[in-house]
């Protein structure tokens, strides 16, 4: 639930989503749901030479279970708050 709450805060910011099949897509986070399904807009593929056919995609829906990493914008991360939230989550409170 921590990730869900946290990603919701990032809506409207640019993130890079790396899929388990190595495809990495950068775009504006449009929405995220409780299963961490992610909708991106204004997308671009990080490695365009490897996935040229993906150039035509400008918005996409990514199934939460195929996401390996979400790279966050540095200015979208308040490290202190994230630390606190992570500790609270780990304690289960």
């Amino acid at each position: 639930m921590l990730f869900f709450s946290y990603f919701k805060e990032l809506v409207g910011k640019e993130v890079t989503v790396e899929l388990k099949n190595d495809l990495a897509i950068t775009g504006i986070l449009h929405s995220v749901d409780q299963y961490l399904n992610i909708k991106l807009e204004n997308t671009r593929v990080v490695d365009e030479t490897k996935y040229p056919h993906m150039l035509s995609v400008k918005n996409c829906f990514i199934r939460g279970s195929v996401v390996r990493y979400v790279q966050l914008p540095p200015d979208g991360v308040d490290v202190e708050i994230l630390h606190d939230a992570t500790r609270r989550e780990a304690r289960g409170s």
Binding site: L23, H53, L55, S56, V57, K58, C60, I62, S65, V66
Partner: peptide, 26 residues
């Protein structure tokens, strides 16, 4: 839907001749 990893609207006819729904399947 468990196998549908990603879906997207593809409109750039330079990359594909016709506008379409592009999907990736696990």
């Amino acid at each position: 839907f468990l196998s549908l990893a990603m879906h997207a609207i593809s409109r750039d006819t330079g990359a594909y001749p016709l506008p379409c729904i592009y999907t990736q399947i696990e």
